[in-house]
Write a protein that binds this DNA or RNA. Structure first.
Lengths: 184, 184
DNA sequence: GGGTGTGAAACTCTTCACAGCG
DNA sequence: CGCTGTGAAGAGTTTCACACCC
């Protein structure tokens, strides 16, 4: 593959992603037909379209609640900065952490959540607090006007219908691999 | 719900898990019929059966490669210790970290990987190294005899057919929520 | 020629609904 | 009676195969 390749085929995307080639085509076609027959997809165009679909083509402020080991790691995680997604502020219950910055992000008290969420127009929050505190955090975030939550605490949480909530239990993946080893 | 409840129905498991009740029943029935009609599932029995299915009923040594922010957070993550899963050893390329312990786990050099993986009978590894180093780590792990890999580096990796590899790109979840906000 | 976009077929997964057992 | 386990129906997803366009 030459550096600077201008076009990419569904067959190559298949090899790179692990999804089958027809599936790549069907999924992309669902959002419009921006491939060229006999050529493939323009890499530049594809980036634009996907960014536009995901909404990552424009800046989006997000926040992190909980600045323990996992919260710090996620604040520093390189995968998020891409695509205009930016941590505007973080929150923690520990008074000793308030006023410090982690990976350049200021840590603020939970009591200022509603004000800061609104000032920064934040719609998406990540949660990395102890399991016991997680549901209270969800309730506070919802009250502050948050519209989507990604929960890393190892407990299933609930939110009102109109708030998108995804639980990411990291142990589940380990258990699945453990199952795969023990069986098929 | 009384504390000490001995039995649990698929309806209650549904509320707790978010899966539908018929689905809970069908999935459990797939592995055998250990529910009682008119009563539900014995909580004790259910724990045993699920542990046996997942292979989490017996101790399993695992390892972590990369002791940066994310690696440290995962080593300290409470969700893994449950179920007999235990970090026996961690690896890092940084000479200054060798010999230290993180969350009680000794950090060893990559050059000792093959020996230590075999000494501890480790079959499952987690990867949290920079994206650029991740594929090399996979190759080393495979050479050392690892059978399953959970990759947290933000890059799709490949391994031979007989090695189970799961890529956990944390940014994907954020992007999906971003998409949900922008659309449905 | 080469590779997309898509109708149709195949498959998988989920839900429904209820027989049957404790 | 209450709830599981499951055949049958339904929904959704993936694959196939090829017409069509660059």
């Amino acid at each position: 593959m030459a550096v600077g390749t201008k076009n990419i085929s569904s067959a190559r995307l298949s090899r790179l992603s692990g999804f089958s080639a027809p599936q790549v085509r069907r999924d992309l076609a669902y959002f419009g037909s921006f491939g060229k027959r006999g050529v493939g997809y323009s890499v530049g165009r594809l980036r634009e379209e996907v960014g536009s679909i995901l909404g990552t083509d424009q800046p989006r402020n997000i926040t992190m609640v909980g600045v323990g080991n996992l919260g710090r790691a996620l604040l520093a995680y390189k995968g998020f900065d891409r695509h205009g997604t930016r941590f505007a502020v973080a929150f923690d219950a520990d008074a000793r952490k308030i006023g410090s910055t982690v990976a350049g992000v200021p840590v603020e008290p939970l009591s200022d959540m509603e004000r800061l969420v609104q000032e920064h127009a934040i719609e998406l929050a990540l949660i990395a607090v102890p399991a016991a505190a997680a549901q209270d955090v969800v309730d506070s975030l919802v009250a502050a006007g948050i519209k989507a939550i990604l929960n890393f605490a190892p407990r299933a949480l609930t939110a009102p219908e109109d708030v998108k909530l995804t639980n990411v239990d990291l142990a589940v993946e380990v258990e699945y691999l453990s199952y795969s080893l023990a069986n098929g």
